[in-house]
Design a protein around this nucleic acid. Structure first.
Length: 221
DNA sequence: GGCCAGGACACCA
DNA sequence: TGGTGTCATGGC
């Protein structure tokens, strides 16, 4: 079976089993962007504490955040780790976007390619973070290529000896540029990957069937 | 007590 | 261009 067919098949099976996961867990686009920075190399549980702290100080939007002090931000986001680095990134990004466009929505109106170039120049926004912002905060037809995606595709056998970025970049086409499907497909991969066994290559049964005897048994070699 | 988590970046050869 | 060190908290 070729790549597009496999993708459609996986999406169909996963969705029929697990449904709409309603990702990204955030109330506003600004919160998505802030969460995307905070979650770098950190568990989401640690990020949630930081998000709650920022919310309690009304700092979950770019305007408020850009006017907050370094000390205040770094204290509030400490639980997410790398807090000095993330404070600088949050301040730099929020100040630039807020001062030049006023809002994330205004920035998104410049179009996807503009946003890719614009966000790509900022310190703290790499490939994955940008994908997350483009898809989940700005509703552009972008598929998030992160560690989970690559691990999933590799272990499923859809990527062989090298990471074929072009293949992964074709996923928006395969999913018909449907924003909701792109959001949910990535969410399914991430949520389910947390429960996969570590066999290599991963048994397809484990991916597509949560009743697989190896499901959640991460100790399997 | 070690390892890993929804990365990115600077530095070096 | 690719490998490595650094940033740091928290859960298991």
């Amino acid at each position: 079976m070729n790549f597009p067919s496999e993708i459609l098949n996986i999406e169909h099976v996963l969705f029929s089993q697990y449904g709409d996961l309603k990702w990204w867990p955030a109330k506003t686009p600004d919160e998505v962007l802030i969460g995307a920075i905070l979650t770098q190399n950190t568990t989401w549980k640690n990020v949630e504490k930081a998000i709650d702290n920022l919310a309690s100080e009304n700092l979950l939007d770019l305007g408020s955040l850009s006017n907050a002090s370094r000390e205040k931000i770094s204290t509030l986001i400490k639980s997410s780790g790398f807090y000095n680095q993330k404070t600088e990134r949050l301040l730099g990004i929020s100040r630039k976007i807020y001062s030049e466009f006023g809002s994330l929505h205004n920035l998104s109106r410049q179009g996807m390619q503009f946003c890719i170039d614009y966000l790509g120049q900022m310190k703290g926004i790499g490939r994955e973070t940008m994908d997350s912002i483009l898809l989940y905060a700005m509703d552009f037809p972008r598929f998030v290529i992160d560690k989970y995606t690559i691990r999933f595709m590799t272990r499923y056998g859809l990527l062989q000896d090298h990471i074929d970025i072009e293949k992964l970049e074709s996923i928006p086409d395969i999913l018909n540029h449907d924003i909701w499907r792109l959001k949910n497909f990535h969410a399914l991969i991430v949520e389910l990957s947390k429960n996969f066994c570590r066999s290599e290559p991963l048994c397809k049964n484990c991916i597509l069937n949560k009743n697989c005897k190896y499901y959640k048994d991460k100790s399997v070699p």
